[in-house]
Design a protein around this nucleic acid. Structure first.
Lengths: 246, 246
DNA sequence: AGACTTTTAAATGTCTGACAAATGAAAATC
DNA sequence: GATTTTCATTTGTCAGACATTTAAAAGTCT
């Protein structure tokens, strides 16, 4: 592991990059202990604070974990689904929030990916997944539910559908996409009638999963996508009219 | 922005978390300048090195960028697709590399997502995308190509298919999944015959895109998935036999 | 007055040295 | 032999200093 003395970049960034490369390439494997901060400082010929900044960068990506005390140090971390998932949600949420991505684009991406697991979900859904879906549908029908709680339940419902596909890699990828949509969905005010429509579509999805009928799930998802986009459109139109009345 | 004095977690982690929350929640928006390190140190009642460690954590996630000099400082960064993409590839690659995920699981997830954009790709593919796909197919047929170069071209081909869907959110999500598979794919040695089979399938995908026939793309992708899994299986079987000959 | 140069203040980047706190191993004690 | 104490190691945090970069502000010349 070496750094380029000619580079103008921050030393801590260079050091972090060197160690990251060693981990990604497999030169350092899960559980390996990195040299102590003092040793790293000597190896890279920098001071300990600089090394520490580099290590904090890696810790922010869950690449390492640190432990105090004798025989402590920095260890290469096993990236868990939970960690990866959390990072993906942060990244996706910010990406959607900062880049003026249209509701339609985000919606299209989300439902395209969700349809991708319909086939597998129909094949592998367990009674557990079905029960979760039914429970969320019931919750969504309860009176007095706030829009936010309705959205949260919506996310949980779709999360169950994704998990039903029984592929952890798919779950990790899609859960990020679905959850990142939530702030956008939260902008919509759901009338009682639109809630009923969504709940009916959720019911058809759950029925399709129960019957192991992928076609039914996909059809319902397509209708849900169209309905969601129409709903969002009307919200945006109403806002535009309020802001700019003729 | 406050931190909990009772928490046992690292101060730098707490400070990073507080600032991150402010960014994700929208209290700090793109382009906003954070207080200087000295001011932050005073606000949080910690030393400057501790503040710096917190800022480096945020920089590692591309949440902020720093600028030296007068009127410099730390600014909330617009998370670009490029940054998000790079992070996703690192995360996905490590997740796949560290967690003993079977080739089949990863392969299934990848092709499920890729099929999800077939419909959109058939609808929106531009001459540019078609040209890229054709060019990669040509490259793949060249003699003397190393296995690694073949894999890289394979990734480029599928990347073009994903981009053809014309949805940046989808591209960001899927590019990570496809590229993260590359180290796994690199374990396979491609015989001339298997290369020919893959190239033929790529040709059918490109033809389907050219004809705007989503069904053809999906069928070819399914065959490609099956073929890839069969190929990987034979590689693993051969290894098992070598390691444990009867 | 306007264009160019110099100065300067503010900010990050880096270093040194120090102490606190945690932690597990080893030594001492019962 | 079991328990307690000591101790070395390592990370976490702090204080203060200097180097470097940067753009605004002041100064200078035409």
């Amino acid at each position: 592991m070496k750094i380029d003395p000619a580079s103008t970049a921050d030393l801590s960034a260079q050091i972090a990059s060197a160690i990251r490369d060693a981990i990604v390439s497999g030169a350092l494997i899960v559980g390996d202990r990195l040299p102590s901060e003092a040793e790293l400082a000597e190896q890279f010929a920098v001071s300990r604070p600089t090394v520490r900044e580099a290590l904090k960068r890696l810790a922010a990506q869950s690449l390492i974990r640190t432990q105090r005390g004798a025989f402590g140090g920095a260890f290469v971390n096993r990236l868990s689904y939970t960690d990866a998932h959390a990072q993906q949600i942060t990244t996706s949420t910010l990406l959607l929030g900062m880049n003026d991505i249209s509701f339609d684009t985000a919606c299209e991406a989300r439902f395209a990916m969700e349809r991708a697991c319909a086939q597998l979900a129909a094949l592998r859904r367990s009674p557990d997944h079905l029960a979760t879906m039914r429970a969320e549908i019931t919750r969504q029908g309860q009176p007095g539910l706030t829009d936010e709680a309705f959205c949260a339940s919506d996310v949980a419902f779709h999360r169950a559908l994704v998990d039903a596909a029984g592929n952890p890699v798919l779950s990790y990828q899609l859960a990020g996409a679905v959850e990142a949509m939530q702030p956008l969905m939260n902008m919509i005010t759901f009338s009682a009638r639109s809630r009923d429509a969504i709940i009916a579509l959720h019911g058809r999805i759950a029925d399709g999963a129960a019957a192991q009928d992928a076609g039914q799930i996909i059809t319902a998802l397509e209708e849900l996508e169209n309905y969601t986009r129409k709903l969002a459109q009307s919200v945006f139109d109403a806002r535009a009219t309020r802001a700019n009345p003729t």
